[in-house]
Amino acid sequence: MTDIKTWARVKSPWVLHFNSGACNGCDIEIVALLTPKYDVERFGVKLEPSPRHADVLLVTGCVTQQCAERLKSIYDQMPQPKFVVAIGACACSGGVFEGNYNVVGGVDKVIPVTAYIPGCPPRPEAMLDGVVKLLNALNPPKAKKQPKPAKEPEVAKPEVVVAHAAQPVVEEVKPIAKQ
């Protein structure tokens, strides 16, 4: 039963994209993922309009003061189990905007992050790789470890602002940030 559950979750990740103050660079690359050259629908990925339908929240950009509240409420609206992927250098750490007067910092200052995909912006392939690696992390290794997928929901229940998820699945994917 757990196997089927995990299989379904891995094969059908519906994503919601939230821009928390990004420069559009990562955002257009996410949209490019949907288009013929990359076509993430192959993997069952669907871009959903409502946070209620989503499994994975893709956050791009450093978190600005004005977006922080909103980002948290969108995260809270998502049903369990849910995952957050920080896309781009800014979402991972604040990037070039770290320390500016209107910037809170990386996404993990506001909500727990499951996977980080650095790059400015990461290539679409890198994003794809990141999401797939995240989902494969759900698949317990051959020995049946039941708690792994069931554990994620616990991780994702922040009452207060946390700096890091309890067990972030950090995937370093081809950092090609430029400067």
Binding site: W7, R9, S12, D39, G44, Q80
Partner: peptide, 24 residues
């Protein structure tokens, strides 16, 4: 279009359905 869930992605709707059933 769907490719990886089952041959040619034919199980994609089933995966979506089961996943939604198991969500909060």
């Amino acid at each position: 279009g769907p490719m990886v869930a089952g041959p040619g992605g034919i199980l994609q709707p089933l995966a979506d359905f089961i996943k939604l059933l198991t969500k909060e």
